[in-house]
Amino acid sequence: MPCEFSQNQLHGYLDGELDAVSASEFEKHLGSCPECQRLLAVDESLRKAMRDSMLYERAPRTLRENLFGHSTQQVSMQSPAVRSASWRWLAAAAALVLAVFLGWRQIGHPSGPSATQLAVAALVDAHLRSLQPGHLADVESSDQHTVKPWFDGRLDFAPPVPDFSGDGFPLLGGRLDVVQGRTVAALVYGRRKHIINVFVEKASPVIAWTGSGSTQGYQWIAWQKDAFTLCAVSDVSSADLNTLKDLFLAQ
């Protein structure tokens, strides 16, 4: 005879959807009901299994292409659209040079692509490239003591490589990317079924960019820490990216 609570409230409780009164009522019941205790544990582990086993299937590249055609291709994939891509690199470089000359400090100019927007577009490109099969990590490891030394000799700086598994952002690996002509370290983190790239480069004394926003449907957030500029790019919520940034800053 199944317990009445197990048919309903247990699930609202598991999903954090009960109001405070119902939740405490259920908790009271839970203390004296072995069946609900068992089911709660089983369904909790089942949920974890579903999330951990990467059942989530992302939209294939072809779907994006069919919908948006060539005009966004250079952003959404490694593409044969070399001409427009190289034009964008030039534009990015030019904008950066201009910004340096003006000693211009940054951010979200509302009209026309700013240096930040171009930098972000390049990082979103790099993020998307990394999601293609086989491109995610040059060194695949959840061990920061494996990933960090891997960067030795490959960069002229030693990026911080923290692991935040305990906070729900497990380190998955690392990789080198060339972004706007500069070699940067890309740290790969998981967030539930999502991938987050954290790009790390030496902070420029002139353009210390920070900020956050959304580009092409991807969230980004940039910050400064020690001598580095870091920028996280992902399709997770901006709240998640903020959390990750705070974890880095708290290091």
Partner: peptide, 18 residues
């Protein structure tokens, strides 16, 4: 449309796939 809806393309595909 791109700014508002495109972020959910993966969600759309994943739901359809299952």
């Amino acid at each position: 449309f791109e700014a508002v809806v495109l972020p959910h393309l993966d969600a759309a595909f994943n739901l359809a796939r299952w």
